[in-house]
Design a protein around this nucleic acid. Structure first.
Lengths: 192, 192
DNA sequence: TACAAAAGTGCAATCACTACACTTTTGAAC
DNA sequence: GTTCAAAAGTGTAGTGATTGCACTTTTGTA
C-alpha cells in the first residue's frame, strides 16, 4: 500500500534493532537482569534514542497489537451464523492458544512474561485496552447503544477470562466452563 | 485482645505519622508532585525508615484491607437465606458504595486514586488479591473443590464488576445489569 | 544547493528504591 | 539495676529507569 521512504524505513529498522536486542537479552538473562543501557548498546543506539522509540522498558517486548485487536473484533463480528458472542470469543481464544503452541519460541516468550511481574502487569494492561472497542462491537452487533453496561461487562469479563483460563491445566475444559458461565449464568448450574 | 507494648505502639505511631503525612500531601498537591523525601520530612523520619514501613510510594495510601476482605467474604458466607451468591455480592458492593458516599473526605480520596494511573493500578491490584480467597469461600459454599474454575471465574468477574460499575452514572442500575449477567448469563436477555 | 524537519546523541538531572554500616531504643533475662 | 540482643531508626551512597536539554547528523524537498 504505502510506499515507505528511506527515512521511514530506517526508522523502522532502528526500532526493530532495539526490539530484537531487547528480546534476545531478556530471553537469555531475564527482564530484571538486563538494563536499558545494555540493550541500547547492543542495538547500537543511544539510550535516548531507545526511549524515543519505546515509552518504557516493558514496551520493548510488545509490538503493536493492532493485528491482535482486529482479529479479536473480527471473531465477534464475523462469527458463524447461529453462534453466540461468548461462544465466538471462546473459540477465538482456544484457536489463538493453539496457534501459539506451535511456535516453540513463543512458549519461552510466554514464560518470560508470565514469570516477570512487571511484564505480566504490562501485558495485561495492554490486553485490557481492547475492552472498549470490543464492547462497541458487541453493542453494535446486538443493536443497543454503544455505552451499554452489559456489553462493557461482557467485553471485560471475556478479556479477563483469557488469562484466567491460561492458568488452568485443562484449558479446553476451563474455557467451556468459564464461557458457559458467561453464556448461561451462575444460576444455571446451581439448582441442577 | 492483644495488649501492645510500648515498642509496638511506637512503631504503629511512626507508621501512622508517615501515612498521615502522605495523605495530606497527596491530597493537597497530587501523587506525582510529591516526593517520598518530602513525606518523610513531614513525618519526621528518614526515607529509609519510610521504606521500612511501606514497600512502595503507592502503598502509603492503602492500609491493611483485612477488614475489607473479611467483609467481602462474610457477605457471601453469611448472606440471607435464599439469596444467590451474585446477589449477595451485588448487595455488598452497593452497600459499601453507599457507606463511602457519606464521608465527604472519602470522595476526594477516591478522586485522587482514580485520576492517578499509578494509584488506580495499585488499588486495583490490591483489590484483585482477594480473588483467591473469595473463590475458595464460594467453592466451600456450594460444595465443590476449592480450585474449581467456575468459582474462580465468578470471583474474578465479581471483583472486576465493582470497578466497572463505579464508572457508570447510575450505579444501582448498572449493578443490577452486570450482576444480572453473572446470574443469568448473556443468553438470557438475547432472545427476548 | 539550501533549508527545515526528523532522527539521533551525550550529558546531567530526577526520583523511587536498596544495600550498608551505623547508632539508639527497648524488652526482658539475670 | 545491669546487661545484652533484637528491633527501630539514620545517613550515605548507590542503581536503574526515565526525562530535559542543547547539540549534531541525516534526509526529504523546494
Amino acid at each position: 500500500m504505502t510506499e515507505l521512504g528511506r527515512r521511514e524505513r530506517k526508522k523502522l529498522q532502528t526500532r526493530q534493532s532495539i526490539s530484537d536486542a531487547a528480546l534476545e537479552l531478556f530471553m537469555a538473562r531475564g527482564f530484571d537482569d538486563v538494563g536499558v543501557k545494555e540493550i541500547a548498546d547492543r542495538a547500537d543506539v543511544s539510550v535516548t534514542t531507545l526511549f524515543k522509540h519505546f515509552p518504557s522498558k516493558e514496551s520493548l517486548l510488545f509490538d503493536e497489537d493492532e493485528e491482535q485487536k482486529s482479529a479479536l473484533l473480527g471473531a465477534v463480528r464475523d462469527r458463524p451464523a447461529g453462534a453466540s458472542i461468548p461462544q465466538a470469543l471462546r473459540d477465538h481464544f482456544v484457536e489463538a492458544a493453539k496457534g501459539h503452541a506451535d511456535h516453540p519460541l513463543f512458549a519461552d516468550f510466554q514464560h518470560l512474561v508470565r514469570s516477570t511481574p512487571a511484564l505480566r502487569a504490562y501485558a495485561h494492561r495492554m490486553w485490557m485496552r481492547h475492552q472498549e472497542a470490543l464492547a462497541q462491537v458487541i453493542a453494535a452487533d446486538i443493536g443497543v447503544p454503544e455505552d451499554d453496561v452489559r456489553c462493557a461487562a461482557l467485553a471485560r469479563f471475556a478479556l479477563e477470562a483469557r488469562d484466567l483460563i491460561f492458568d488452568q491445566p485443562d484449558r479446553g475444559r476451563a474455557a467451556d466452563e468459564v464461557f458457559g458461565l458467561l453464556e448461561h449464568g451462575w444460576a444455571a448450574d446451581q439448582q441442577s
